[in-house]
């Protein structure tokens, strides 16, 4: 119960400091690999210590990396990626161009103002806009699938801007 109260307070805090752009709960980053450091060789160890194994950390799994941001937000009835979110899209474009084996799915969503079908089309246009920018940034078309849920899968269900701003969104899913 206490936990619930705290999270409500937190949500309120977030809501009260939210400007135009919703504070996205930082995209769920797979709770994997905290940065792995190479095992330190002990002083008494053998004369020729093996070179420390190089552990390549996938930047995708680094919560501090911009790639941890996976959501793009929009003003009402707009489907172009806004300037503020372009660095996120371009970072994913760069990552994809360097990892041609990786594939993603971009899911467009819309708030509930409009008909369900219009919102489906709007969500699709949002997702396709992200795809186009990813391609301009170096990703290959074959790495990106797009889909829209329109207003059918709202993240927030209120009839207010606080909810709507969360729902006008494209999600990049690896």
């Amino acid at each position: 119960m206490k936990k619930l109260v705290i999270s409500i307070v937190l949500v309120n805090l977030l809501a009260s400091c939210a400007s135009e752009k919703p504070k996205e709960p930082e995209a769920a980053v797979p709770e994997s690999a905290p940065v792995v450091t190479a095992p330190v060789a002990t002083p008494e160890a053998a004369p020729a210590p093996a070179p420390a194994p190089v552990v390549a950390v996938d930047p995708l799994n680094d919560p501090a990396n911009i790639l941890a941001k996976r959501s793009i937000y929009y003003p009402f009835d707009v489907s172009a990626v806004q300037d503020a979110d372009k660095p996120i899209v371009l970072a994913h474009a760069k990552y994809l161009s360097e990892h041609l084996d990786r594939k993603i799915r971009v899911e467009g969503n819309a708030d509930e103002r409009g008909s369900n079908e219009y919102n489906l089309a709007l969500g699709q246009r949002r997702a396709d806009g992200v795809k186009k920018m990813l391609e301009l940034g170096g990703a290959k078309a074959g790495q990106i699938e797009t889909a829209s849920y329109g207003e059918e899968k709202p993240k927030a269900t209120g009839h207010d801007e606080a909810s709507w701003s969360q729902n006008r969104r494209s999600d990049i899913k690896y």
Partner: peptide, 13 residues
């Protein structure tokens, strides 16, 4: 039932 349209992107309305 049959799938009437299932092309890439959205098929609707």
């Amino acid at each position: 039932r049959l799938v009437l349209a299932n092309f890439r992107g959205s098929n609707s309305a």
